[in-house]
Simulated scan of single mutants.
Amino acid sequence: MLNWKEVIKLAKEGNLPPDKRVEKSESEWREILSDEEYRVTRTAGTERPFSSQMCTLFEPGIYECVCCGTLLFDASEKFDSGTGWPSFTQPIKENAISYNADTSHGMVRVETLCSTCDAHLGHVFPDGPAPSGLRYCINAVSLKKVH
């Protein structure tokens, strides 16, 4: 189970290698993604808070990356953070997510990316529930529920 100290180490010293890589040109991503999916995942955008019903859906299932289909989160790790974005305590596998120190908007945060295709997912914070204490705050548009 990942914790904040490990997330910071990965963001600073390098991420775990992914199981595979998916790389496409900008035009190839534009062909397969909606305008909003492209804006969020390929240009590090953020959807409006509370803009998705995914925040309030807690049925069992698995969430994958909308860009490449990599499995990212299990619904059993999902919780209601009240932030307006779907929140999870752990990725499905430690190497499913990459971490990047993000100093935009005058603050220091840790950006989360799909390790397979580098899609921007959201950010992770150290204010989640026990036992991990992590809150993966993820743009719903970057996820697709598959199971």
Rank of each mutant, 00 (worst) to 15 (best):
R21S: 14
L71G: 13
E13F: 11
N95T: 01
E59S: 08
C65W: 06
E77G: 15
V141K: 05
D118H: 14
R21F: 11
Y38K: 12
L10I: 07
Y38N: 11
H147Q: 13
A75E: 13
I97E: 01
T112K: 04
L33R: 10
R42G: 12
K9C: 01
S81R: 04
M54V: 13
V110T: 08
K78L: 09
P91Q: 03
A119R: 07
K5E: 14
I62Y: 13
G14A: 07
E36L: 14
G69C: 10
Y63I: 03
A140M: 13
T83D: 05
L71P: 13
Y99T: 03
P129L: 08
L113E: 06
G61V: 02
E31W: 10
I138N: 00
D80A: 11
Q53M: 14
I138Y: 02
E47Q: 13
W4R: 00
S25I: 08
P18Q: 13
P86Q: 03
L2Y: 04
S142C: 11
Y99F: 14
N95G: 07
P49L: 00
M1K: 02
M107N: 15
D102N: 12
K5H: 12
C137I: 02
H147C: 07
G14F: 09
L16N: 11
L16S: 11
E6D: 05
I32R: 12
V22F: 09
G82T: 09
K12I: 01
R109W: 06
C68Y: 09
E31M: 11
L2W: 07
G69F: 06
H147E: 12
W29E: 10
D127Y: 00
E31K: 12
S76N: 14
D80I: 01
L143R: 08
L71H: 13
T41A: 12
R135N: 02
T43P: 00
N95A: 03
E26S: 14
E23C: 04
C137H: 05
G45I: 01
T70L: 07
E37K: 07
D35L: 04
V108D: 03
R39S: 07
G122E: 01
R21V: 15
R42W: 09
Q90K: 11
V124N: 04
W4M: 02
F50R: 00
E28W: 09
G128N: 06
K12M: 10
N139G: 10
Y99K: 00
